[in-house]
Amino acid sequence: MMELTILQNDMAWPFAILIAWMAGEFTHRWVKLPRISAYAIVGFLLAPSQLGLLPVTQSPTMLLMANIAFGLILFESGYRINLRWLRNNPWIAVSSLTEAALTFICVYFLVLAFGQSTTSALLLAALSMATSPATILRVINEHKSSGQVTERVLHLSVLNCVFAVLVFKIIVGLVIFKTSGNLWDASYNGLVVLIISASLGVGFGIFIPAVLRKTKRLHQDGTLAFTIAVVFIVALTHSLKLSPVLATLTFGLVVRHRRIILNASQHGFGALGDLLSVILFVFIAATIEWRQVVAGVGLGLAIIFVRQFAKIIGIGIFARVSGISWRKGALIGMATMPISAFVILVLEQSRYIGIDLIDQLAPLAAAALTLEIIGPLFIQRALIWAHEVPEIKEN
């Protein structure tokens, strides 16, 4: 009996990943749904608090694997950011800042209206600012989309992540200081973490291309080198309790502006990237408990509505002045719906460093589950309606 229990625990995650991959392939083939929506449904159903296939104890190894998967996607997201474009068209950054600020304000007052504490309102508002580049990039790569809506929503998602991490870390630092009165702990978990994490990404963004140029293996070994570097950065930030989100985003951004060109086979990191994406989205959905979804469903759905309204308005008002139509501005706002991958991993990282906010932020469980499943559908529709998906173009 003990041997069967050990076997079940050992095989739980490999079995879940296999089931999720099969579900993703069949749903994509039969009903043309994004694969990651199926991964999320399988992960949620097999979670300990639902069907109970996956182990109750949170595995540090799986958290690290999910962070590595997220890190690879964030690296590629950062790599695709064109700072020259943002300088030439500053209205894109202005629209991002406006919709992030509008989202924060609207969600903050909404949460207070539901009778939540000021701390919960601040934390929920900060995390609601984010848009998950992981979900957006996987859908973009899956459909091979390209165009104004594709590029803008990817740029806005990265900027939103940076804004959300900055505000979230500052608020967490203030909460720690208010609770313990320890200025060093508050500072370290706030601004110091952000500065060190960004510096780490910049350092690797300079060092790795220099090594590849020196060894004359830039084109042959680029993917391998960047993958190893991302794994190392994520493991190091995980161990030092820094921010892997900011470190990997910065790494990708610096690599691009060191004039390193990734060829087509390097985008998405091939089969390794696909495997880790399955792990990432199954892991994210498996962390969501049904009781938390039920407890926060009212506020969670309200947050989804208010958040989406704020983002569409914040982006839409700058659509014409930034060089696109109102329609495309609305489609970009619609495509910024995903949030789950960023929020869940940030909260899991916070719990890992000793700051457990999961129970305080139960409404996010309902929002995360909903957006984990329907978010990819909204991105897919937005890209199709913008005529930026190749199959649609051909038709």
Score class of each variant (00 low, 15 high):
294 V>N: 11
362 A>G: 01
6 I>Y: 04
294 V>P: 09
16 A>T: 01
53 L>G: 01
156 L>S: 00
140 I>P: 05
222 G>F: 09
347 L>W: 01
319 A>N: 02
147 G>P: 05
139 V>S: 08
244 P>F: 12
295 A>D: 15
360 Q>K: 11
120 S>Y: 04
199 S>R: 02
389 V>Q: 13
103 T>R: 05
233 I>G: 05
138 R>F: 11
161 C>P: 01
61 T>N: 13
277 S>T: 14
331 L>I: 01
310 A>S: 10
114 F>A: 07
13 W>E: 11
212 L>C: 03
374 I>S: 13
289 E>I: 01
270 G>R: 06
10 D>E: 10
19 I>M: 06
26 F>H: 05
152 R>L: 15
266 Q>L: 00
199 S>F: 02
261 I>K: 12
203 G>V: 07
58 Q>R: 12
263 N>G: 09
161 C>G: 15
259 R>Q: 15
155 H>E: 10
323 G>S: 03
67 N>W: 05
239 S>C: 06
354 G>P: 03
237 T>P: 05
193 V>A: 15
124 L>C: 10
58 Q>H: 13
96 S>A: 12
177 F>Y: 07
158 V>A: 14
265 S>P: 05
143 H>K: 15
386 A>C: 03
16 A>S: 03
162 V>K: 07
335 A>T: 12
246 L>T: 07
18 L>H: 11
191 L>A: 13
122 L>D: 12
243 S>K: 04
139 V>R: 01
17 I>Q: 03
2 M>N: 15
130 A>T: 00
175 V>F: 12
12 A>E: 12
